Amino acid sequence: MRLDVPYAWPAGEDEALALQERLRPLADHRGPGPAAPRLVAGLDVAYAGDGRGTGDLVAAAVVVIDTATLGVVERATAAATTAFPYVPGLFAFRELPALVAALRKLTTTPDLLLCDGHGRSHPRRFGLACHLGVLTGLPTAGVAKTPFTGRHDPAALGPDRGDHADLVDDGEVVGRALRTQSRVKPVYVSTGHLIDLPTACARVLDLSPRYRLPETTRQSDHLSREALAAG
């Protein structure tokens, strides 16, 4: 998979903020995105230290899933020591170099990327999923375990699989809380690039037949932890 980065990674907060502002208009949230993707890649990053993003050693994992069987088609990892500081809202710059290195190892090109993180549900509407989508030119969405920007009305979220409620920030819909299994906590879906929100949610449901997290997230989370432990 060819993947060029046409700029240097920012060294500090001001450079990163400026790059987000410059790239944000390039993210296309209209979609509709792939209606029946065959290959979907899950992307995740594990951190050393407390595991919450404060450690400097990171391991990125990409797992390509065949949606027909939910079997693993390809896996790739990359470890790195991140040089970018811990700044909420700029986590992408701690993770992107390792994720790009892992993506470059793939021999297949996924139809859709699902990253463990946020896209439009970000203070500047340009989270990790947006950045990955713009870099790769692939349809991309974020699937997060917890919300970041935007809140939903708890009364609007039903208890059954497929029920959802909009995440709203400053009057703007930035994502959805999506119930992937009945009577379990929702996941938080937001668009990154070349896919709309209903389609992104439908694809997440397709990949979550048994568990709260989609198979892409489950597999990439496990692999990133393995890679981190292996050093």
Rank of each mutant, 00 (worst) to 15 (best):
A83W: 12
G117W: 13
F84I: 07
T77I: 07
V87L: 15
F93R: 10
D66I: 10
A79V: 15
V45Y: 11
L112K: 09
T81S: 14
R38V: 06
Y47I: 03
A102Y: 04
A83T: 15
A59Y: 09
A41E: 00
G55L: 02
T77H: 08
L70A: 10
I65G: 12
A41R: 00
R52Y: 15
V72F: 12
A60M: 09
A48C: 05
L103F: 11
G89E: 03
A92Y: 04
I65C: 13
H29F: 14
P37T: 09
P34N: 02
A98T: 01
P110H: 06
D111K: 07
P37H: 05
T77R: 01
A59G: 08
P97H: 08
G117Q: 12
R94H: 03
P97F: 12
V45F: 08
A60Q: 09
A98D: 03
V40I: 14
T77M: 00
D28S: 00
A27I: 06
L43V: 04
P34L: 02
A68G: 15
D56L: 11
T109F: 00
D111G: 15
A48T: 09
L57S: 12
A76G: 06
F84P: 07
A61V: 09
L106H: 09
G117N: 04
A76Q: 10
T67G: 06
A41D: 01
A98L: 06
R52Q: 15
V62K: 08
A78G: 02
T69E: 09
R104F: 03
I65S: 08
T81P: 03
P37K: 07
G51V: 06
L112N: 11
A78R: 12
G55I: 09
A92N: 03
A48H: 08
L99I: 13
K105L: 14
R75A: 13
V45H: 05
A76Y: 10
A46H: 07
A46D: 12
F93Q: 10
L43D: 00
V45R: 10
V64T: 05
Y86H: 13
L106A: 12
A59V: 04
D111E: 15
L70C: 08
L103K: 07
G117L: 05
L96Y: 02
D56K: 15
Y47T: 00
A80I: 00
A92H: 01
A78Q: 06
P88A: 05
A79Y: 00
A59R: 13
T54W: 15
F93H: 04
D56T: 14
D111Q: 11
L103H: 12
A101T: 00
T108G: 07
T81C: 14
V62C: 15
T69G: 10
L90K: 00
L39E: 02
L43H: 01
A46P: 07
D116E: 04
I65K: 12
D116P: 01
V63A: 13
A46E: 11
R94L: 00
A68C: 04
R75C: 11
L103E: 12
L90Q: 05
K105R: 15
A76K: 04
P34T: 01
V58Y: 06
P110S: 02
G117M: 08
L57P: 00
L113Y: 11
V72Q: 11
A46I: 07
T109C: 05
D50K: 04
V58H: 01
